[in-house]
């Protein structure tokens, strides 16, 4: 296992390789020790100009670290409702904690997001490739579900006090069982034994963790 410092070093190199210098974090606080540590682990080689270049393994690790970082940002922003300008500093600490496997689970929870809150791309993981084949068993907004799909409300993606209050007054809380009934002309879903209808602006704020596959007995 490599130190957080090395992880960050590799992440920066990877970023510079793929996205150029626009990321402010690619400052070269490079000291020889980090580079040497990375080189010993086989993640970089030192080029003729003395600068570090990623090896295959280094590139893979750098990409994974970046993925964790941006997933962490999404998690902080979408679920924990941390303000966008604060997500990055928090995520920097987070990225070293999310060990392999955990990032995939967070990725699934969030519905395999493609970009971070700032709009930068999130590298794909194994789980995203699988999700492409089977769109179920993931998290997405109510408006992206399918009729007769059931699930559990994962969270409400809004900070608007009034919106939250309305949704909660109807009993739409994280943890509530929910069944989508129809998408058009308005969104209709069942909660317990009551049906509700909402428009798109509310439906896209109810984030649901969908169940695997609904045995469609009714139709």
């Amino acid at each position: 296992m490599v130190s957080p410092r090395v992880e960050e070093f590799l992440e920066n190199l990877y970023l510079r390789e793929t996205e150029g210098d626009r990321c402010s974090r690619v400052g070269d606080e490079d000291n020889g020790t980090t580079q040497r540590e990375a080189e010993n682990a086989g993640y970089v080689v030192t080029g003729p100009d003395g600068k570090a270049q990623l090896t295959e393994a280094g590139r893979a690790l750098g990409q994974r670290v970046l993925r964790r970082c941006r997933l962490a940002e999404r998690l902080l922003h979408d679920v924990l409702l941390v303000r966008k300008d604060r997500t990055q500093s928090n995520a920097c600490a987070f990225e070293h904690v999310l060990q392999d496997g955990l990032d995939n689970r967070i990725c699934t929870l969030l519905g395999h997001p493609r970009v971070c809150p700032h709009g930068h791309p999130i590298p794909e993981g194994e789980c995203c490739k699988r999700a492409g084949l089977d769109p179920l068993n993931e998290v997405s907004a109510l408006c992206d579900g399918r009729p007769n799909q059931t699930g559990v409300v994962a969270y409400l993606s809004t900070r608007d006090h009034r919106e939250i209050q309305k949704l909660m007054a109807l009993g739409i809380l994280p943890g509530s069982d929910i069944r989508l009934i129809r998408l058009f002309p308005s969104y209709v879903f069942e909660l317990g034994h009551t049906q509700f209808t909402v428009d798109r602006s509310l439906a896209e704020k109810i984030i649901v963790h969908w169940r695997d596959r609904e045995d469609d007995s009714s139709s």
Binding site: L167, L170, V188, T194, Q195, F196, T197, V198, D199, S201
Partner: peptide, 9 residues
């Protein structure tokens, strides 16, 4: 306005 409404049976 937002639209949300209960649909009684």
């Amino acid at each position: 306005p937002m639209f949300y409404m209960e649909l009684p049976p």
